[in-house]
Structure formats: C-alpha cells, structure tokens
Design a protein around this nucleic acid. Structure first.
Lengths: 199, 199
DNA sequence: TAATTAATTGTCACTTATGGCAATAAACTA
DNA sequence: TAGTTTATTGCCATAAGTGACAATTAATTA
C-alpha cells in the first residue's frame, strides 16, 4: 500500500555524488550544497536518505571501505590465475577499466579526518591491511620460496605505488610518471624471481 | 621612527599554523578560526599579515613549494657523499629528524585543490619533478651503467614510497608498514646494483 | 614629549552551511 | 475512491566563515 521506496537507489546515487565531491574537494569541502548539485537533487533529500552530517560521513566511510574490500576480493580472485609477480603488476596497472581513483582519494580524505572521527581509524586500517594481505597471499602462492619479509615488502611497495598513481590524478600528472610508477612496481616484482636475498 | 615590523616573524608563525591545520583538516577544513587558534593570535591578524583567503592559499602554496624545493636541494647535497643506492634509501628513511610530514600532507591537499586553483598546478608539478630529478641525478651518478628508464623507475618508486609513508601518518599506521615501506625502497635500490636488465 | 608607523583588537555586515520541520505530491493497495 | 506510506520540496532558525574597517595600543625616533 505504500509508495515504493527509492531508498536503496537514491542512497547509492547520493553516496556516489558524495564520493565525487570528497575526492575533489576533500571531506570538509564536500558541502551538502555541492553534493546535492552533483547528485541532481534538493539538499533536504540528503538528510532524508543519509541523515545528518556525521551520519553521512559514517555512511561514506562504510561505502568506501566496503567498496575497497570488495575490490580487494575481486582483484584477489583475478590474481588467482596468474603465475608470475610481473603478471600481477601488469594486471593491477593495466586492467584499470573497472578502477575508479575516487575511492582511494576518498580513502585518504577519510584517513586525514581520523583525528576528528577516531572510530574510523580501525576500519580504515583494516581495509588497507586486507588489500596488503591479499597481495601478500598472492605473492606467497606464486613464489613460495621467497622469504616472508621480502614478500611483505614487495606487497607494501606495490600497494604504495598503486595508491600513489591515484593520488596524482587531480594534478594531471605527466604520462611518464605513470609509466615509471608501473615500471617501479615491475622492478619490485622482479626481485622475487631473481633470488637476491641479500639485505 | 616607526614601530618595528613583526611582519617576517608573524608571517612565518601564521604560515606554520596554517600548515599544521591544512595537514590535519585539509585545505577547506583549515578555517581562519582554527589557524588563529593554532597560531595563538586573533583572527584579524591573519588578514593583516597574509591577506584574504585566496592570498593566504597562495602564500601557503609558495611556502610549501619553496620548502619542498629547499628540502630537495638539501637532500641532494647530503646524497652527494654516498656511494650506493642502498645508502640513499637509508639516508632518506632513517635520517628523518629534520623531516616534517606536514609538508607532504599539505602538498597533497593543495594538489587536490588544483581543480579550483588551476594556477597552482604547474608549480606543484615542478616541485615534485625537482625532487624526482634530484633522485635521478643521484642514482645516475652512483650507478652510471644503469639504463635511464630503470633509473627513472627507481627514482619514481622511491619517491612514491617516501610520500606514502607520510600519507599514512594521520592514521597512526602499524610500525610494520613503515619497515616494509623502507624495505621495499631498499629492494628497488638493489635492482640497480644487481644488473638484471630484463623488463 | 610629540610624531609616526605598525601591531593588535573589537565589531559589524554579508555569505555560506547545517538542522529541522511542515506541507505537498506521488504511488500503491484495499 | 479513500487511505497509507514515502518522496519531494519550501522554508526558517541557527551557527560558522569571511571581509572589512575603525579604534586602540605599542614601540621607536626626532
């Protein structure tokens, strides 16, 4: 008997607009006016669907973190078919059709805001750790003979390079930077195959 | 005959407080109230010394960029005495007494704001390129036999890892991450000494 | 001591951002 | 068609942020 609920759909749309604004203006720069304009709705609708400002931040954090976790799982599944660390890097850096830099930019914006929202610290750390663990497990499977410390270092390094590439996107970086970043990830991966285990 | 000018000193103090706030709250979260409180002065003094909001942003950008450039030069000079890429990494990641993560956090905050302040794009890119070039030149001097593409990749990688370490500081990251990041930089450096020039 | 210049503060107007709620419109069902 | 629930909008109160300027205080020198 009630009017059909748009809650799921509208919430998604508004969260996506919120994500866009946070990636572009930072967390405190993502005002309700901007979000509403980006989503193409009136401002009171934000409150109707996502609640007040703090609730909106929590909703965004949940969205970003769960999307990040999902991406980790999806990437992990894709990497299950690969045989060399270099293939892993190639997959991460070239198969970017599905990859959206807004998520990592928003992740960083939320990380900065942890000082004011301490409860977000653990989930944010956990989501990054999940990504790292996925890389570690994949590398450990591909190169079982490699020492754990090296596996972890390579995983951390590839992750950092992956994140760094997204961080630069608002600047419109020179194409060479991206190529060099990918090549750096390749070099890191190659240290696992050419067994040079001298610290 | 006039009262002595505090302009240089006060401007420095206020810019430092501004830097602190931008690193902590992002560019749009660094309100004049917070900056004034951080600097321990009344709000109108910000305007007196640094001008209006846009002028303050420009002043901060100049400050961050010139500090970054200076750091590049200083680090470049320190690296002039080293003989191996591993020493370079050790110097960058352990000799951090003088290194202040606020600068790179503010640099990233300014980079995000380039969408609204397009004139900052080139100076920001140039300052990062200066850092990269310094690393490239140092590596090229230490390992002259290495191919340019590999030099550039290692420089880009070490730079990304260096930046990444600072990006995580607001989160209070686990100590292992920092160690792994440094180890990843070490692995990258080591690819220049063990000559494995297979892509 | 008087003059000069800058530092510092108080205060106002204007804009932007947020919270909240009442009222209306729309879709569905009994 | 009437009733019910939700979507959607308009509106207002309050707070926060910024710009601007007048007034006051302080330090220096002639």
């Amino acid at each position: 008997m009630p009017r059909p609920s748009m809650k799921d759909q509208r919430s998604e749309e508004i969260l996506d607009a919120y994500l866009t604004c946070v990636a572009r203006f930072g967390l405190e720069g993502a005002t309700q006016e901007r979000i509403a304009a980006e989503a193409g709705v009136k401002r009171p609708l934000l409150r109707h669907y996502l609640g007040n400002k703090d609730q909106m931040i929590d909703a965004l954090a949940d969205h970003v973190i769960s999307s990040f976790d999902l991406a980790s799982d999806v990437i992990g599944a894709e990497l299950a078919a690969l045989d060399t660390p270099q293939d892993l890097v190639a997959m991460l850096f070239t198969d970017r059709g599905a990859h959206d830099p807004r998520y990592l930019l928003a992740w960083q914006a939320l990380a900065i805001a942890v000082a004011d929202h301490p409860h977000m610290r653990e989930p944010l750390l956990a989501s990054m750790q999940r990504f790292l663990t996925m890389l570690q497990n994949t590398l450990a499977r591909i190169v079982p003979s490699a020492p754990t410390v090296q596996i972890n270092a390579v995983a951390q390094g590839i992750s950092a390079l992956f994140i760094n590439a997204d961080s630069f996107t608002p600047l419109g970086p020179p194409a060479a930077w991206r190529a060099e970043t990918q090549e750096a990830a390749m070099l890191l991966a190659s240290t696992l195959t050419s067994h040079t285990s001298e610290a």
